[in-house]
Amino acid sequence: MKVDMKLQLRDVPGSLLRALEPVSVHGGNIVSVLHSREDGGRVSVQISFKIKDQSSLDLIKRELRKQNIRLSEILLEGKRYYSKKTLSFILIGHVIDTDIRGTIDKINDVGLVSDIDVIMPSPEKRSSVMMNIDIDNRKIKKLNRLINEICKEKKFLVIRSLEG
């Protein structure tokens, strides 16, 4: 089975090797690797490989997700198998003091918080938290509804990306 996989990697030494490892470990025969640098310290990588069956692909996916590697698209025999977006959000409010772990867990029920950046000027002031959330295209509305609920409950202001 032919697989074309698009990944988003951090532009740091060794990240490409780490992304390729699960493919070869689970029996993938790599045909080609294309990569290009993008803004914001990221590298877009397109890997084409052959595998025995779909369960091998699921194992590769799981391994890549464990390593927090973003999968933006998978084509299996030329057909879209799995497509994802990474959406950015900024939450403004007492995000840390209102159980940030709980907030992340709730979001992870729908998508995956893959990156988080916090500025907290002082404990009594509102903090600003930027999150990147990997989300299946079909679940974007659900994610938006969830974030609205969280913001209402915890009195946050949310700043969505334009595509979010």
Binding site: S88, I90, I92, D117, I119, P121, S127, S128, S161
Partner: peptide, 24 residues
């Protein structure tokens, strides 16, 4: 939703990630 509750820190975060905040 207006812009009055936007913090300078949120603007800084956006900038750090190659973004800007605009009222759309």
């Amino acid at each position: 939703t207006g812009i009055k509750d936007i913090t300078p820190e949120a603007i800084e975060l956006a900038k750090k990630h190659n973004c800007v905040i605009k009222l759309i």
